[in-house]
Amino acid sequence: MEEEGWQQRLWGENYGRLKRIKRTVDPTDVFWCTPCVGNERWKQIGDRLCRV
Rank of each mutant, 00 (worst) to 15 (best):
1 M>V: 12
1 M>I: 10
1 M>K: 06
2 E>F: 05
2 E>I: 05
2 E>N: 08
2 E>K: 08
2 E>S: 09
3 E>R: 04
3 E>S: 06
3 E>M: 01
4 E>Y: 04
4 E>R: 06
4 E>P: 07
5 G>D: 00
5 G>N: 03
7 Q>C: 04
7 Q>V: 10
7 Q>H: 06
8 Q>I: 08
8 Q>G: 12
8 Q>T: 14
8 Q>N: 08
9 R>N: 09
9 R>Y: 11
9 R>F: 11
9 R>D: 06
10 L>C: 06
10 L>P: 00
11 W>Y: 15
11 W>C: 03
11 W>Q: 03
12 G>E: 07
13 E>Q: 13
13 E>D: 14
13 E>M: 06
14 N>I: 02
14 N>Y: 11
14 N>L: 15
14 N>G: 08
15 Y>H: 09
15 Y>D: 13
15 Y>K: 05
16 G>P: 07
16 G>Y: 01
16 G>C: 02
17 R>C: 03
17 R>H: 09
17 R>D: 14
18 L>E: 13
18 L>P: 07
18 L>F: 09
19 K>R: 10
19 K>H: 07
21 I>L: 14
22 K>A: 06
22 K>M: 04
22 K>Y: 01
22 K>I: 07
23 R>F: 04
23 R>L: 11
23 R>S: 10
23 R>C: 01
23 R>G: 02
24 T>A: 10
24 T>N: 02
25 V>L: 14
25 V>Y: 09
26 D>G: 05
26 D>N: 05
26 D>M: 08
26 D>L: 06
27 P>R: 04
27 P>H: 08
28 T>M: 08
28 T>R: 15
29 D>H: 12
30 V>S: 06
30 V>F: 14
31 F>A: 11
31 F>E: 05
32 W>L: 13
33 C>N: 11
33 C>W: 06
33 C>P: 02
33 C>I: 14
34 T>L: 01
34 T>E: 03
35 P>V: 15
35 P>T: 15
35 P>F: 07
36 C>Q: 01
36 C>Y: 02
36 C>L: 02
37 V>Y: 00
37 V>C: 00
38 G>E: 01
38 G>R: 00
38 G>F: 00
39 N>H: 13
39 N>V: 09
39 N>T: 14
40 E>V: 08
40 E>G: 11
40 E>W: 10
41 R>K: 12
41 R>C: 05
41 R>D: 15
41 R>Q: 13
42 W>D: 01
43 K>C: 08
43 K>P: 00
43 K>Y: 05
44 Q>E: 14
44 Q>D: 01
45 I>C: 10
45 I>T: 10
46 G>K: 05
46 G>T: 03
46 G>A: 06
47 D>V: 04
47 D>Q: 12
47 D>M: 11
48 R>M: 12
48 R>G: 05
48 R>K: 15
48 R>S: 13
49 L>W: 12
49 L>A: 05
49 L>V: 11
50 C>W: 13
50 C>T: 09
50 C>Q: 12
51 R>P: 10
52 V>Q: 04
52 V>K: 03
